[in-house]
Design a protein around this nucleic acid. Structure first.
Lengths: 200, 200
DNA sequence: GGTCAAATATGACTAGAGTCATAGTTTGGC
DNA sequence: GCCAAACTATGACTCTAGTCATATTTGACC
Protein backbone atom coordinates (compact mmCIF):
# COMPACT_ATOMS: atom_id res chain seq x y z
CA UNK A 1 0.00 0.00 0.00
CA UNK A 2 1.37 3.39 -0.99
CA UNK A 3 2.03 6.17 1.49
CA UNK A 4 -0.77 8.12 -0.07
CA UNK A 5 -3.30 5.36 0.49
CA UNK A 6 -2.11 4.85 4.04
CA UNK A 7 -2.51 8.53 4.85
CA UNK A 8 -5.96 8.61 3.31
CA UNK A 9 -7.16 5.74 5.42
CA UNK A 10 -5.53 7.24 8.48
CA UNK A 11 -7.22 10.59 7.96
CA UNK A 12 -10.61 9.01 7.33
CA UNK A 13 -10.26 6.93 10.48
CA UNK A 14 -9.18 9.97 12.45
CA UNK A 15 -12.29 11.85 11.34
CA UNK A 16 -14.41 8.84 12.16
CA UNK A 17 -12.89 8.39 15.60
CA UNK A 18 -12.98 12.05 16.60
CA UNK A 19 -16.48 12.67 15.33
CA UNK A 20 -17.72 9.50 17.01
CA UNK A 21 -16.46 10.79 20.32
CA UNK A 22 -17.85 14.29 19.80
CA UNK A 23 -21.25 13.03 18.65
CA UNK A 24 -21.52 10.92 21.79
CA UNK A 25 -20.44 13.82 23.98
CA UNK A 26 -22.64 16.54 22.56
CA UNK A 27 -24.84 15.07 19.86
CA UNK A 28 -24.71 15.29 16.11
CA UNK A 29 -26.43 18.65 15.75
CA UNK A 30 -24.30 20.34 18.38
CA UNK A 31 -21.02 19.17 16.90
CA UNK A 32 -19.65 21.41 14.16
CA UNK A 33 -17.43 20.35 11.30
CA UNK A 34 -14.98 22.96 12.56
CA UNK A 35 -14.68 21.20 15.88
CA UNK A 36 -14.19 17.85 14.24
CA UNK A 37 -11.45 19.12 11.96
CA UNK A 38 -9.69 21.03 14.74
CA UNK A 39 -9.65 17.97 16.98
CA UNK A 40 -8.56 15.78 14.10
CA UNK A 41 -5.78 18.22 13.23
CA UNK A 42 -6.88 18.79 9.65
CA UNK A 43 -8.20 21.73 7.67
CA UNK A 44 -11.91 22.18 7.20
CA UNK A 45 -11.72 21.65 3.47
CA UNK A 46 -10.07 18.30 4.03
CA UNK A 47 -13.13 17.03 5.82
CA UNK A 48 -15.16 17.55 2.67
CA UNK A 49 -12.63 15.61 0.64
CA UNK A 50 -13.62 12.59 2.70
CA UNK A 51 -17.31 13.18 3.31
CA UNK A 52 -19.31 15.25 0.87
CA UNK A 53 -21.56 16.57 3.64
CA UNK A 54 -21.88 16.29 7.39
CA UNK A 55 -24.77 13.90 6.77
CA UNK A 56 -22.56 11.70 4.63
CA UNK A 57 -20.46 11.12 7.73
CA UNK A 58 -23.60 10.02 9.51
CA UNK A 59 -24.38 7.55 6.75
CA UNK A 60 -20.85 6.23 7.07
CA UNK A 61 -21.53 5.54 10.75
CA UNK A 62 -24.65 3.75 9.63
CA UNK A 63 -22.77 1.64 7.10
CA UNK A 64 -20.19 0.58 9.65
CA UNK A 65 -22.92 -0.40 12.06
CA UNK A 66 -25.00 -2.16 9.48
CA UNK A 67 -22.09 -4.16 8.11
CA UNK A 68 -22.19 -6.14 11.32
CA UNK A 69 -25.96 -6.56 11.45
CA UNK A 70 -26.32 -7.65 7.89
CA UNK A 71 -23.66 -10.29 8.39
CA UNK A 72 -25.76 -11.70 11.21
CA UNK A 73 -28.90 -11.43 9.16
CA UNK A 74 -27.31 -13.06 6.16
CA UNK A 75 -26.61 -16.08 8.40
CA UNK A 76 -30.19 -16.05 9.58
CA UNK A 77 -31.46 -16.37 6.04
CA UNK A 78 -29.36 -19.49 5.52
CA UNK A 79 -31.12 -21.42 8.24
CA UNK A 80 -33.69 -23.99 7.31
CA UNK A 81 -36.59 -22.84 9.46
CA UNK A 82 -40.20 -21.85 8.74
CA UNK A 83 -40.48 -18.66 6.73
CA UNK A 84 -42.37 -16.83 9.42
CA UNK A 85 -39.62 -17.53 11.94
CA UNK A 86 -36.97 -16.56 9.47
CA UNK A 87 -38.54 -13.21 8.76
CA UNK A 88 -39.10 -12.62 12.44
CA UNK A 89 -35.45 -13.37 13.13
CA UNK A 90 -34.33 -10.96 10.45
CA UNK A 91 -36.45 -8.22 11.92
CA UNK A 92 -35.37 -9.01 15.45
CA UNK A 93 -31.69 -8.84 14.48
CA UNK A 94 -32.29 -5.44 13.00
CA UNK A 95 -34.34 -4.31 15.97
CA UNK A 96 -31.65 -5.40 18.40
CA UNK A 97 -29.08 -3.45 16.49
CA UNK A 98 -31.29 -0.35 16.56
CA UNK A 99 -31.83 -0.78 20.27
CA UNK A 100 -28.08 -0.66 20.85
CA UNK A 101 -27.80 2.97 19.77
CA UNK A 102 -31.08 4.78 19.80
CA UNK A 103 -29.61 8.19 19.01
CA UNK A 104 -27.77 6.99 15.94
CA UNK A 105 -30.83 5.11 14.78
CA UNK A 106 -32.91 8.25 15.16
CA UNK A 107 -30.54 10.23 12.98
CA UNK A 108 -30.12 7.46 10.42
CA UNK A 109 -33.79 6.85 9.83
CA UNK A 110 -34.15 10.41 8.59
CA UNK A 111 -31.18 10.05 6.28
CA UNK A 112 -32.48 6.74 4.99
CA UNK A 113 -35.91 8.16 4.33
CA UNK A 114 -34.33 11.10 2.53
CA UNK A 115 -32.05 8.81 0.59
CA UNK A 116 -34.85 6.43 -0.49
CA UNK A 117 -36.79 9.32 -1.94
CA UNK A 118 -33.95 10.68 -3.98
CA UNK A 119 -33.12 7.17 -5.22
CA UNK A 120 -29.66 8.11 -4.06
CA UNK A 121 -28.07 5.20 -5.80
CA UNK A 122 -29.05 2.51 -8.23
CA UNK A 123 -30.98 -0.40 -6.69
CA UNK A 124 -27.91 -2.58 -6.33
CA UNK A 125 -25.19 -0.54 -4.74
CA UNK A 126 -27.60 1.24 -2.41
CA UNK A 127 -26.55 0.57 1.16
CA UNK A 128 -29.80 1.91 2.53
CA UNK A 129 -30.96 -0.29 5.36
CA UNK A 130 -34.62 -0.22 4.37
CA UNK A 131 -33.72 -1.25 0.89
CA UNK A 132 -31.53 -4.10 2.03
CA UNK A 133 -34.15 -5.33 4.44
CA UNK A 134 -36.73 -5.25 1.70
CA UNK A 135 -34.61 -7.37 -0.59
CA UNK A 136 -33.84 -9.94 2.08
CA UNK A 137 -37.47 -10.26 3.09
CA UNK A 138 -38.39 -10.61 -0.55
CA UNK A 139 -35.97 -13.47 -0.97
CA UNK A 140 -37.24 -15.24 2.15
CA UNK A 141 -40.81 -14.88 0.99
CA UNK A 142 -40.02 -16.36 -2.39
CA UNK A 143 -38.49 -19.31 -0.63
CA UNK A 144 -41.56 -19.44 1.60
CA UNK A 145 -43.84 -19.67 -1.42
CA UNK A 146 -41.73 -22.55 -2.68
CA UNK A 147 -41.98 -24.29 0.70
CA UNK A 148 -45.73 -23.75 0.87
CA UNK A 149 -45.12 -21.75 4.07
CA UNK A 150 -46.68 -18.81 2.35
CA UNK A 151 -49.75 -18.63 0.11
CA UNK A 152 -48.74 -18.89 -3.53
CA UNK A 153 -51.36 -16.31 -4.47
CA UNK A 154 -49.47 -13.42 -2.89
CA UNK A 155 -47.41 -10.82 -4.66
CA UNK A 156 -44.05 -11.33 -3.00
CA UNK A 157 -42.79 -7.81 -3.61
CA UNK A 158 -45.93 -6.32 -2.21
CA UNK A 159 -45.70 -8.36 0.97
CA UNK A 160 -42.05 -7.41 1.32
CA UNK A 161 -43.15 -3.79 1.17
CA UNK A 162 -45.74 -4.44 3.86
CA UNK A 163 -43.12 -5.97 6.10
CA UNK A 164 -40.64 -3.20 5.48
CA UNK A 165 -43.36 -0.72 6.34
CA UNK A 166 -44.11 -2.58 9.55
CA UNK A 167 -40.44 -2.36 10.43
CA UNK A 168 -40.21 1.32 9.60
CA UNK A 169 -43.26 2.48 11.47
CA UNK A 170 -42.54 0.29 14.49
CA UNK A 171 -39.11 1.82 14.55
CA UNK A 172 -40.56 5.31 14.53
CA UNK A 173 -43.00 4.49 17.31
CA UNK A 174 -40.25 2.91 19.34
CA UNK A 175 -37.95 5.88 18.82
CA UNK A 176 -40.63 8.18 20.13
CA UNK A 177 -41.27 6.06 23.18
CA UNK A 178 -39.16 6.52 26.26
CA UNK A 179 -37.76 3.03 26.23
CA UNK A 180 -40.69 1.36 27.93
CA UNK A 181 -41.54 -0.77 24.90
CA UNK A 182 -39.32 -3.34 23.29
CA UNK A 183 -38.89 -2.84 19.59
CA UNK A 184 -38.13 -6.47 18.83
CA UNK A 185 -41.13 -7.84 20.75
CA UNK A 186 -43.61 -5.55 19.13
CA UNK A 187 -42.41 -6.41 15.66
CA UNK A 188 -42.58 -10.12 16.25
CA UNK A 189 -46.25 -9.98 17.16
CA UNK A 190 -47.01 -7.94 14.09
CA UNK A 191 -45.55 -10.55 11.81
CA UNK A 192 -47.80 -13.16 13.43
CA UNK A 193 -50.79 -10.99 12.62
CA UNK A 194 -49.76 -10.57 9.04
CA UNK A 195 -49.38 -14.31 8.58
CA UNK A 196 -52.70 -15.15 10.20
CA UNK A 197 -54.66 -12.24 8.78
CA UNK A 198 -56.95 -10.01 10.74
CA UNK A 199 -60.25 -10.43 8.91
CA UNK A 200 -63.12 -12.71 9.89
CA UNK B 1 -61.18 41.83 15.26
CA UNK B 2 -58.54 44.34 16.28
CA UNK B 3 -56.25 46.06 13.81
CA UNK B 4 -53.35 44.13 15.26
CA UNK B 5 -55.01 40.78 14.63
CA UNK B 6 -55.99 41.79 11.12
CA UNK B 7 -52.44 42.80 10.27
CA UNK B 8 -51.07 39.58 11.70
CA UNK B 9 -53.34 37.45 9.58
CA UNK B 10 -52.57 39.58 6.56
CA UNK B 11 -48.83 39.21 7.01
CA UNK B 12 -49.07 35.47 7.58
CA UNK B 13 -51.18 35.07 4.47
CA UNK B 14 -48.77 37.21 2.49
CA UNK B 15 -45.87 34.97 3.52
CA UNK B 16 -47.94 31.90 2.69
CA UNK B 17 -48.96 33.21 -0.70
CA UNK B 18 -45.52 34.46 -1.75
CA UNK B 19 -43.67 31.39 -0.54
CA UNK B 20 -46.21 29.11 -2.20
CA UNK B 21 -45.51 30.77 -5.50
CA UNK B 22 -41.74 30.73 -5.04
CA UNK B 23 -41.69 27.10 -3.93
CA UNK B 24 -43.63 26.10 -7.04
CA UNK B 25 -41.33 28.18 -9.25
CA UNK B 26 -37.97 27.07 -7.88
CA UNK B 27 -38.52 24.47 -5.21
CA UNK B 28 -38.31 24.64 -1.44
CA UNK B 29 -34.56 24.24 -1.13
CA UNK B 30 -33.78 26.84 -3.76
CA UNK B 31 -36.00 29.48 -2.23
CA UNK B 32 -34.37 31.54 0.49
CA UNK B 33 -36.10 33.20 3.40
CA UNK B 34 -34.54 36.43 2.16
CA UNK B 35 -36.35 36.12 -1.14
CA UNK B 36 -39.63 35.37 0.54
CA UNK B 37 -39.38 38.36 2.84
CA UNK B 38 -38.28 40.71 0.05
CA UNK B 39 -41.19 39.66 -2.15
CA UNK B 40 -43.57 39.88 0.77
CA UNK B 41 -42.30 43.34 1.68
CA UNK B 42 -41.31 42.48 5.23
CA UNK B 43 -38.03 42.26 7.15
CA UNK B 44 -36.29 38.96 7.56
CA UNK B 45 -36.81 38.92 11.30
CA UNK B 46 -40.54 39.27 10.79
CA UNK B 47 -40.65 35.97 8.97
CA UNK B 48 -39.41 34.23 12.09
CA UNK B 49 -42.10 35.89 14.17
CA UNK B 50 -44.59 33.91 12.13
CA UNK B 51 -42.73 30.66 11.46
CA UNK B 52 -40.04 29.52 13.85
CA UNK B 53 -38.06 27.92 11.05
CA UNK B 54 -38.26 27.57 7.29
CA UNK B 55 -39.44 24.00 7.90
CA UNK B 56 -42.27 25.25 10.08
CA UNK B 57 -43.60 27.04 7.02
CA UNK B 58 -43.54 23.72 5.20
CA UNK B 59 -45.54 22.11 7.97
CA UNK B 60 -48.04 24.93 7.69
CA UNK B 61 -48.48 24.09 4.01
CA UNK B 62 -49.03 20.52 5.11
CA UNK B 63 -51.64 21.49 7.67
CA UNK B 64 -53.57 23.57 5.16
CA UNK B 65 -53.53 20.71 2.70
CA UNK B 66 -54.43 18.09 5.26
CA UNK B 67 -57.31 20.11 6.66
CA UNK B 68 -59.13 19.34 3.43
CA UNK B 69 -58.21 15.68 3.27
CA UNK B 70 -59.09 14.94 6.83
CA UNK B 71 -62.49 16.49 6.34
CA UNK B 72 -63.08 14.05 3.50
CA UNK B 73 -61.71 11.20 5.54
CA UNK B 74 -63.81 12.09 8.54
CA UNK B 75 -66.87 11.68 6.29
CA UNK B 76 -65.57 8.35 5.11
CA UNK B 77 -65.41 7.03 8.66
CA UNK B 78 -69.09 7.88 9.15
CA UNK B 79 -70.26 5.57 6.44
CA UNK B 80 -71.74 2.26 7.38
CA UNK B 81 -69.64 -0.05 5.21
CA UNK B 82 -67.43 -3.07 5.94
CA UNK B 83 -64.34 -2.20 7.95
CA UNK B 84 -61.97 -3.32 5.26
CA UNK B 85 -63.61 -1.00 2.73
CA UNK B 86 -63.65 1.81 5.21
CA UNK B 87 -59.95 1.55 5.93
CA UNK B 88 -59.21 1.23 2.24
CA UNK B 89 -61.21 4.37 1.56
CA UNK B 90 -59.35 6.28 4.24
CA UNK B 91 -56.02 5.27 2.77
CA UNK B 92 -57.17 6.01 -0.76
CA UNK B 93 -58.30 9.51 0.21
CA UNK B 94 -54.91 10.15 1.69
CA UNK B 95 -53.12 8.63 -1.28
CA UNK B 96 -55.12 10.77 -3.71
CA UNK B 97 -54.19 13.85 -1.79
CA UNK B 98 -50.53 12.89 -1.86
CA UNK B 99 -50.74 12.25 -5.58
CA UNK B 100 -51.96 15.78 -6.14
CA UNK B 101 -48.69 17.35 -5.06
CA UNK B 102 -45.82 14.91 -5.10
CA UNK B 103 -43.17 17.52 -4.34
CA UNK B 104 -44.92 18.80 -1.25
CA UNK B 105 -45.57 15.25 -0.09
CA UNK B 106 -41.90 14.43 -0.48
CA UNK B 107 -40.89 17.34 1.69
CA UNK B 108 -43.60 16.73 4.26
CA UNK B 109 -42.87 13.10 4.84
CA UNK B 110 -39.41 14.02 6.07
CA UNK B 111 -40.79 16.66 8.39
CA UNK B 112 -43.42 14.28 9.69
CA UNK B 113 -40.86 11.59 10.34
CA UNK B 114 -38.68 14.11 12.13
CA UNK B 115 -41.63 15.43 14.07
CA UNK B 116 -42.84 11.98 15.16
CA UNK B 117 -39.47 11.19 16.62
CA UNK B 118 -39.23 14.33 18.65
CA UNK B 119 -42.79 13.85 19.88
CA UNK B 120 -43.18 17.41 18.69
CA UNK B 121 -46.46 17.88 20.49
CA UNK B 122 -48.61 16.01 22.91
CA UNK B 123 -50.63 13.17 21.38
CA UNK B 124 -53.76 15.24 21.01
CA UNK B 125 -52.82 18.52 19.44
CA UNK B 126 -50.29 16.88 17.13
CA UNK B 127 -51.28 17.62 13.57
CA UNK B 128 -48.88 15.06 12.17
CA UNK B 129 -50.54 13.21 9.34
CA UNK B 130 -49.18 9.80 10.32
CA UNK B 131 -50.46 10.28 13.80
CA UNK B 132 -53.92 11.33 12.66
CA UNK B 133 -54.13 8.45 10.24
CA UNK B 134 -53.14 6.05 12.97
CA UNK B 135 -55.88 7.28 15.28
CA UNK B 136 -58.56 7.10 12.60
CA UNK B 137 -57.57 3.58 11.60
CA UNK B 138 -57.55 2.59 15.22
CA UNK B 139 -61.10 3.85 15.66
CA UNK B 140 -62.30 2.05 12.53
CA UNK B 141 -60.71 -1.18 13.69
CA UNK B 142 -62.36 -0.96 17.08
CA UNK B 143 -65.66 -0.59 15.32
CA UNK B 144 -64.69 -3.50 13.10
CA UNK B 145 -64.09 -5.70 16.10
CA UNK B 146 -67.54 -4.76 17.36
CA UNK B 147 -69.08 -5.59 13.98
CA UNK B 148 -67.23 -8.91 13.80
CA UNK B 149 -65.59 -7.64 10.62
CA UNK B 150 -62.28 -8.05 12.34
CA UNK B 151 -61.04 -10.85 14.58
CA UNK B 152 -61.63 -10.01 18.21
CA UNK B 153 -58.29 -11.52 19.14
CA UNK B 154 -56.26 -8.75 17.56
CA UNK B 155 -54.56 -5.90 19.35
CA UNK B 156 -56.23 -2.94 17.68
CA UNK B 157 -53.38 -0.52 18.29
CA UNK B 158 -50.88 -2.91 16.88
CA UNK B 159 -52.86 -3.43 13.70
CA UNK B 160 -53.28 0.32 13.36
CA UNK B 161 -49.49 0.57 13.51
CA UNK B 162 -49.18 -2.08 10.81
CA UNK B 163 -51.54 -0.17 8.57
CA UNK B 164 -49.83 3.14 9.21
CA UNK B 165 -46.56 1.47 8.33
CA UNK B 166 -48.03 0.12 5.12
CA UNK B 167 -49.13 3.62 4.24
CA UNK B 168 -45.76 5.14 5.08
CA UNK B 169 -43.60 2.69 3.19
CA UNK B 170 -45.91 2.59 0.19
CA UNK B 171 -45.69 6.35 0.12
CA UNK B 172 -41.91 6.23 0.13
CA UNK B 173 -41.82 3.65 -2.65
CA UNK B 174 -44.30 5.66 -4.68
CA UNK B 175 -42.33 8.88 -4.16
CA UNK B 176 -39.23 7.18 -5.48
CA UNK B 177 -41.01 5.83 -8.53
CA UNK B 178 -41.33 7.99 -11.59
CA UNK B 179 -45.10 8.03 -11.57
CA UNK B 180 -45.59 4.70 -13.25
CA UNK B 181 -47.27 3.15 -10.23
CA UNK B 182 -50.48 4.31 -8.61
CA UNK B 183 -50.15 4.89 -4.91
CA UNK B 184 -53.82 4.31 -4.15
CA UNK B 185 -54.03 1.03 -6.06
CA UNK B 186 -51.00 -0.47 -4.45
CA UNK B 187 -52.22 0.34 -0.99
CA UNK B 188 -55.61 -1.13 -1.57
CA UNK B 189 -54.19 -4.51 -2.48
CA UNK B 190 -52.00 -4.50 0.59
CA UNK B 191 -54.98 -4.07 2.87
CA UNK B 192 -56.60 -7.09 1.25
CA UNK B 193 -53.52 -9.12 2.06
CA UNK B 194 -53.49 -8.00 5.65
CA UNK B 195 -57.12 -8.98 6.10
CA UNK B 196 -56.72 -12.37 4.49
CA UNK B 197 -53.30 -13.18 5.92
CA UNK B 198 -50.40 -14.50 3.94
CA UNK B 199 -49.64 -17.74 5.77
CA UNK B 200 -50.76 -21.23 4.76
C1' DG C 1 17.83 13.12 -7.03
C1' DG C 2 15.42 16.13 -10.38
C1' DT C 3 11.12 16.89 -12.75
C1' DC C 4 6.40 16.82 -13.75
C1' DA C 5 1.53 15.45 -13.28
C1' DA C 6 -1.83 13.82 -10.31
C1' DA C 7 -3.65 13.63 -5.88
C1' DT C 8 -4.52 15.86 -1.65
C1' DA C 9 -4.61 19.65 1.86
C1' DT C 10 -5.59 24.29 3.00
C1' DG C 11 -8.28 28.15 4.86
C1' DA C 12 -10.27 32.48 3.33
C1' DC C 13 -14.60 33.01 1.43
C1' DT C 14 -19.75 32.55 0.35
C1' DA C 15 -24.42 31.75 1.36
C1' DG C 16 -28.27 31.18 3.96
C1' DA C 17 -30.81 30.19 8.42
C1' DG C 18 -31.79 31.96 12.53
C1' DT C 19 -31.00 35.70 16.70
C1' DC C 20 -31.65 39.70 19.25
C1' DA C 21 -31.26 44.46 20.82
C1' DT C 22 -33.58 48.31 19.33
C1' DA C 23 -37.25 50.99 17.12
C1' DG C 24 -41.85 51.48 16.01
C1' DT C 25 -47.08 50.39 16.64
C1' DT C 26 -51.24 49.34 18.87
C1' DT C 27 -54.15 49.12 22.75
C1' DG C 28 -56.72 50.06 26.86
C1' DG C 29 -57.12 52.98 30.81
C1' DC C 30 -57.31 57.59 32.29
C1' DG D 1 -55.86 63.10 23.51
C1' DC D 2 -52.11 61.09 26.41
C1' DC D 3 -49.38 57.54 28.50
C1' DA D 4 -47.41 53.14 29.69
C1' DA D 5 -47.37 48.50 28.63
C1' DA D 6 -47.72 44.96 25.45
C1' DC D 7 -46.94 43.60 21.11
C1' DT D 8 -44.66 43.55 16.52
C1' DA D 9 -41.16 44.83 12.98
C1' DT D 10 -36.52 45.59 11.78
C1' DG D 11 -31.95 44.51 9.90
C1' DA D 12 -27.22 44.11 11.35
C1' DC D 13 -25.17 40.28 13.27
C1' DT D 14 -23.76 35.41 14.31
C1' DC D 15 -23.07 30.80 13.32
C1' DT D 16 -22.13 26.92 10.42
C1' DA D 17 -22.07 24.07 6.17
C1' DG D 18 -20.03 23.87 2.12
C1' DT D 19 -16.79 25.90 -2.01
C1' DC D 20 -12.77 26.73 -4.52
C1' DA D 21 -8.46 28.77 -6.05
C1' DT D 22 -4.06 27.98 -4.45
C1' DA D 23 -0.29 25.49 -2.13
C1' DT D 24 1.74 21.26 -0.81
C1' DT D 25 2.75 16.41 -1.10
C1' DT D 26 3.31 12.10 -3.46
C1' DG D 27 4.63 8.81 -7.04
C1' DA D 28 6.43 7.53 -11.48
C1' DC D 29 9.76 8.10 -14.70
C1' DC D 30 14.14 9.36 -16.39
Amino acid sequence: MSLREKKKIETKNKIFEVSGRLFKEKGFENTTVDEITKEAGIAKGTFFNYFSTKEALLLYFGEKKEELVYDLIENETMKNIPTKEKIKNILICLADSCEKDKELTKLLILEHTKCMQHSCLGPDECKNSLYRLNKLVCASLKEGVGNKDVKSSIDVKMVADIITGIHLYSLIVWLKSDGEISFSNSISEKIDMLFEGIGN
